[in-house]
Nucleic acid binder design. Structure first.
Length: 302
DNA sequence: CCTCGATTGAAATGTGTCTA
DNA sequence: TAGACACATTTCAATCGAGG
């Protein structure tokens, strides 16, 4: 398989006909037909089926077309990057965000990368930490933001950059908050609670905290996705937690109220990269600017 | 039955590799 | 470095098949 086969295939797919493609490519239809046959043989699948006098992509053809378009896009990028010292590859900042991370925290962590002079394009992928780390290992991602450091259990070589730490606050809608604010934290006994999954750092931290204070809340929802927990919380389904550093924004933007704070168990945020000394401008921006700005400037007033 | 587009086989041409 | 060789690509001519 070579670039030519793919080029002919791409043009035939775009034109819907070998004849039209041959005019566009300044070749005879026989040439293109022959090369398409070779490509189909190489891939072991029919790429086109006849529809009247024209050709229509098969399912395999559609699949191949997606790849072909990507390959030529990459080829164009390569050409551009040869003439441009700051390549497009460098300008893209592929970042994985563990789904347990609150969206507001994520936004503040990534904001410095948006303000870079070279106008990086931020490509965000959200998901479970193990799958994001697998993508980091294969260099699909430049950086992963997580609520826990990379350790030996992941079997991946990488470096942790601590971005900051803070306590947790308990939030709820006005009516729910009014019921449970007095006598906090004892008031949480039997309170409707929206819990992070038990396998997340926050979930484990909360569990320990409840055990220490001998509190048994009524757990209504348990899930790793903080956005979903917040959605339940905003509908009045129960009490949920978020980092204390975004307390003001939570109350201002979502109209929820603070019930109390949990300062004795700290939540930490990490940037995980493959390099010890990161050189990617986006990674640097997150690791440095965010570390300095977020947890100092956003600390809520006492 | 004619036209148009796809396909096939044979031959020509182009390109890369090996060897003396 | 030139010539031989192998292989890929392209073209020409003929054929097939669908649609009008």
């Amino acid at each position: 398989m070579n670039f030519k086969h793919l080029r002919y295939f791409l043009v035939v797919a775009q034109e819907g006909s070998i004849n039209k493609a041959s005019e566009k490519l300044h070749l005879t239809p026989q040439t293109i037909s022959g090369q398409l046959k070779l490509l189909e043989h190489e891939l072991g699948a029919r790429l086109f089926r006849k529809q009247g006098r024209n050709l229509k992509l098969t399912k395999a053809g559609q699949h191949a077309l997606n790849y072909a378009e990507d390959i030529f896009l990459l080829g164009d990028e390569l050409k551009q990057s040869i003439h441009n010292p700051v390549s497009l590859k460098q300008q893209r900042f592929n970042i994985g965000i563990a789904d347990v991370l609150p969206k507001l925290i994520t936004y503040h962590l990534l904001e410095p990368a948006l303000n870079l002079n070279d106008a990086s394009r931020l490509i965000c992928e959200e998901g479970p930490l193990p799958s994001l780390l697998a993508d980091l290992a294969t260099q699909k991602l430049d950086l992963v933001l997580a609520d826990r450091p990379l350790d030996a259990s992941f079997h991946i070589r990488g470096y942790n950059h601590l971005l900051g730490e803070c306590g947790l606050s308990f939030f709820a809608t006005r009516n729910v908050a009014a019921t449970y604010r007095a006598n906090f934290p004892a008031s949480l006994e039997g309170a409707p609670m929206l819990m992070p999954s038990a396998d997340t750092e926050r979930g484990m931290g909360l569990k320990r905290w409840f055990e220490r204070y001998k509190i048994r809340p009524d757990i209504r929802v348990e899930c790793a996705d903080t956005a979903l927990i917040e959605a339940f919380g905003l509908s009045g389904a129960g009490i949920f937690c978020a980092p204390t550093v975004i307390e003001q924004q939570m109350t201002r933007q979502y109209g929820v109220e603070v019930i109390g704070r949990m300062d004795d168990i700290r939540e930490r945020f990490y940037a995980i990269s493959l390099e010890r000394r990161v050189s990617h401008p986006g990674v640097l921006a997150v690791c440095n600017a965010a570390r300095m700005a977020l947890f100092d400037e956003l600390e809520p007033p006492e």
